[in-house]
Nucleic acid binder design. Structure first.
Length: 532
RNA sequence: GCGCCGCUAGCUCAACUGGUAGAGCAACUGACUCUUAAUCAGUAGGUUCGGGGUUCGAGUCCCUGGCGGCGCACCA
């Protein structure tokens, strides 16, 4: 397979050089009526032909709605016949009873029933009604009323086909019980198909649409809050000659004209701090990072981060900012700070508990990791079943200890601060304790949500830390950072005291939507190639 | 990367120890003027993920490949 794109499904150009453009060796028209197609597809193809015969345009050019479906339902005055509305939507259910028919239209966040009385329709509209299928987009015009069973409904006096659906959507049957709760029977549930055909997932599962509406509102809310606080939004390179700002392996690519190797960024950090040097004293960027690492419930190779930098601030300012950004956003988007997540109740209201890195280990693992030597750390990890411990340096050992005993215990957001300095090559040493860095992470529900520090602004110190990284890299640590000479040059001009913060947008959305898999909050999560 | 589980009709799922592959929804034909998981009668729908093997006989057992899920590792 040279091209796995879904749009080219079934092309057989490789097998038959004269067959370019054929679909499974057939001209496209014959493909739809071939016996190999499921009957619903063949039937829809026949209906499409019939519609054309009758002079209907199956793919319209536009439509003017007077209301979306939710607004239309709300426009019903409460009794009697309401105003005439023009609405559009996709047919989600269809109940034809001969002389009359009911169907439900759906749009991005609403649903409205339409009632058709054949006697009252023009002959053409009645013909059209007979050729409709689930999944078709239609427009409807008529007055609102309430059915005997109490559902606000539009009585369709006029009907317009907007787009004919040739492929049956995997609709389940929707039952609405006495409490108004939607119960979906059967439906579209196969995880793999849902991700591969996200369009069908979104079309059929309103709760999936809701996740992405929430995601959009979360991002808009963060952006508005930062804009109002005097931050300016910027864009920095994704294609970078040197990657840095985090510990991760990059994706590598190549620019032809420049004939030069480039990397997809693993973090925005170094470019953003250069802007603070340039006197843009509050900047942020919301964008994709790319890390060439494993894939699991909390990691997708491309993911979205908010990074912000504020001059004249330190990590304590960032702690306050992290608290307010997360809790205010939660209040605004989901209406509160108590969230049910993976069987826990997570309380996002500030202030969050603040514990130092070594205190946290003391508390949850029961020993003083700062005093412990490497052998001691490795032995403890080995006893806990980590057989790779003897190959780790001290940084990795401490990190392993932290993720083994501390992280899983933290449910409510917890600020873990004062990390060992060797784990934090871009952070300032802690005042009065240079073995530690002024850095914190926010751990919520067992995973890292925020990473922040007082930014290292001493160019000499930065050079030495880079050099240390370079040594670690030479010693085989594939994730150690490269030496970025231009960044040091920038620091030499003078980086004011600066606080910086990174917040994982995907994980925040997971938290606010109750999802335990990052794939559920990314529209197109990465998957292996599909054979179509 | 390793381990476990899964892949059957367009969708959701059945098929005991190997013995003719089924149901509901969707579809089609017909009936029905306020239905709503509409109902009723009938019809059609399958390369059981691909390849190989064992067997008189494989959805089922074995080998191999693909894809997915979960866990572990990795990802500070």
């Amino acid at each position: 397979m040279t091209d796995g794109s879904i749009g080219d499904a079934g092309a057989t150009g490789d097998a038959d050089p004269t067959g370019i453009g054929l679909r499974d060796d057939l001209p496209i028209e014959q493909w739809y009526e071939a016996p190999a197609r499921p009957k619903p597809i063949r039937d829809r193809w026949t209906k499409l032909a019939r519609l054309r015969e009758l002079g209907f345009e199956p793919y319209a050019y536009g439509w003017d709605s007077s209301h979306d479906l939710t607004a239309a339902r709300e426009a019903w005055p409460g009794e009697g016949e309401g105003p005439t509305v023009r609405v559009a939507g996709r047919i989600e259910s269809l109940r034809d009873m001969g002389k009359s028919a009911f169907l439900h239209l759906g749009d991005r966040n609403g649903r409205l029933q339409a009632y058709f009385k054949r006697q009252q329709l023009s002959e053409r509209d009645a013909q059209l009604l007979d050729l409709l299928d689930l999944g078709d987009w239609i427009g409807v015009e008529g007055p609102l009323f309430e059915t005997r069973t109490g559902e606000v409904t539009v009585r369709a006096d006029r009907l317009t086909l907007l787009s004919k659906s040739l492929r049956p959507l995997p609709y389940g049957k929707v039952e609405v019980d006495e409490t108004g709760e939607r119960i979906v029977h059967s439906g579209f549930a196969d995880t793999e198909s849902r991700y591969r055909q996200r369009y069908a997932d979104l079309a059929v599962n309103p709760e999936v649409r809701e996740i992405f509406l929430v995601r959009a509102r979360v991002i808009a809310s963060l952006r508005r809050r930062l804009d109002e606080s005097g931050f300016i939004e910027v864009e920095t390179p994704i294609l970078q000659p040197l990657y840095g700002g985090a510990f991760a392996r990059p994706f590598t690519t190549h620019h032809n004209t420049l004939d030069r190797q480039l990397y997809l960024r693993i973090a925005d950090e170094l470019y953003l701090k250069r802007l603070i040097v340039g006197s843009l004293d509050r900047v942020y960027e919301i964008g994709k990072n790319f890390r060439n690492e494993g894939i699991d419930r909390t990691h997708n190779p491309e993911f979205t981060m908010l990074e912000l930098y504020q001059a004249m601030a330190d990590y304590e300012t960032m702690m306050d900012l992290a608290e307010s950004l997360v809790s205010e956003t939660a209040k605004e988007i989901v209406g509160g700070n108590r969230i049910e997540w993976d069987g826990h109740t997570v309380d996002l209201s500030p202030p969050w508990e603040r514990v130092t890195f070594f205190e946290a280990i003391e508390r949850h693992a029961g020993f003083d990791a700062r005093a412990a030597d490497m052998t001691d750390l490795a032995e403890r990890l080995q006893r806990a079943g980590r057989d790779d411990a003897d190959s780790m340096n001290r940084t990795r050992l401490l990190d392993a200890v932290f993720s083994e005993w501390v992280e899983p215990e933290l449910v409510d957001p917890t600020i873990i601060y004062d990390y060992p300095i060797e784990m934090s090559p871009l952070a300032k040493p802690k005042r009065g304790d240079p073995e530690l860095a002024e850095r914190f992470e926010v751990i919520v529900a067992g995973t890292e949500l925020v990473n922040a520090f007082s930014e290292l602004n001493d160019p000499l110190d930065q050079w030495k830390r880079f050099a240390e990284q370079a040594r670690a890299r030479a010693g085989g640590d594939a994730e150690a950072q490269g030496l970025d000479r231009d960044y040091v040059r920038a620091l030499e001009y003078g980086l004011p005291p600066t606080g910086g913060l990174g917040l994982g947008i995907d994980r925040l959305v997971m938290l606010l939507t109750g999802k335990t898999t990052i794939r559920e909050v990314i529209l197109y999560p990465i998957l292996r190639e599909e054979e179509i």
